[in-house]
Write a protein that binds this DNA or RNA. Structure first.
Lengths: 176, 176
DNA sequence: CAACTGGGTTGCTCATGGCAACAATTCTAG
DNA sequence: CTAGAATTGTTGCCATGAGCAACCCAGTTG
């Protein structure tokens, strides 16, 4: 608040605990605000971009697309939610023909989830459209800031990765 | 396709449209990931901090605390969600005695929402606890980065503010 | 083979928030 | 002064997204 890039890495004046606290508060505040608003924004954005493309589903598709075919569990752990959610979302995406589940020939239980051609195609459309919207909102930002922002949030995400997610790794099966 | 300048060959002086696109993609990706993870994290965090302090409620309290007593509608528009949500959350917070609604003497419809002493007290506790958690996660970040992050997200938030929220300003009352 | 483990699915519930429709109040013509 | 318009907040109903538990099925291991 006091100063944009203040004393970058200058260890001469230790950042006082107060500064850290204030900064943390700011981050928390802004994140919380963002988080809350993001829901409605992301929803209306998805709707407007493509009616039958649920926001959550879109996220999954981008990952599958980026990482290639993968198993449901990996997908879940990658996105940081439980298997059930992903399972249902994937079922939906399959029902509208954007992905298909291919049985793993080696492991009969597993299935590799991959985009259908139609899924690929739709992803192109949607990504273009979304990009446009983002460009409208963030286009004026200097690229360097965008990059920095992306980096920071990525860092934030890895921070979250450290300690576990739900992702029902809890093995409470076999109870019968 | 819809890019005015899509020349991939001149990345010297201008940030090419490709760079912008890439940066936007990154931001989108990371935000979407963050958003999804944030839910579970924020939930378990709130639980752990205080069982009956719902994450959403906490956000409202911080605002009330920061801005002072305010009306429900203002609160809603400030946080960017509709009145109904806030109304319910406020009802909950009142039921557990953290806030109270005081009828506005001037305007019989309005009510000013304010923290009870117990609310103040609890906010202190919770904020301390949350700060500690945040410190564990982000404490290693240089302060300057924290500040930058906060600034960027704030910027993001103002971007969102530009075009409206639901906040049922739509005047579909009076239909009777 | 039986027991166990691990991948996915389904049932139920919860948290959150949207839209509609409302009640109560205030404001604004006429 | 009174009828209609607007505003404040509430409630009903529904959608989304996610969690936990319990399950099914396919491998794995003793």
């Amino acid at each position: 608040m006091s100063n944009p890039v203040d004393s970058p890495g200058s260890p001469e004046d230790f950042a006082g605990a107060d500064d850290v606290d204030a900064a943390l508060q700011s981050v928390e505040q802004q994140l919380s605000l963002f988080w809350r608003r993001a829901r409605s924004v992301s929803q209306q954005l998805s709707r407007q971009v493509h009616p039958d493309m649920e926001p959550a589903a879109y996220g999954l598709l981008t990952i599958i697309r980026r990482e290639g075919p993968m198993r449901l569990t990996d997908l879940a752990s990658c996105v940081g939610v439980g298997k059930p959610s992903v399972s249902r979302q994937i079922a939906f995406l399959e029902s509208i023909g954007l992905i298909f589940k291919e049985a793993d020939p080696v492991d009969g239980r597993a299935q590799s989830i991959r985009l259908t051609p139609r899924g690929e195609e739709k992803m192109h459309q949607v990504q273009d459209a979304r990009n446009q919207v983002f460009r409208e909102r963030l286009g004026e930002w200097p690229v360097s800031e965008l990059q920095t922002l992306a980096r920071y949030i990525a860092k934030l995400n890895t921070t979250y990765e450290r300690d576990g997610f739900p992702k029902d790794e809890s093995k409470r099966d076999h109870v019968q």
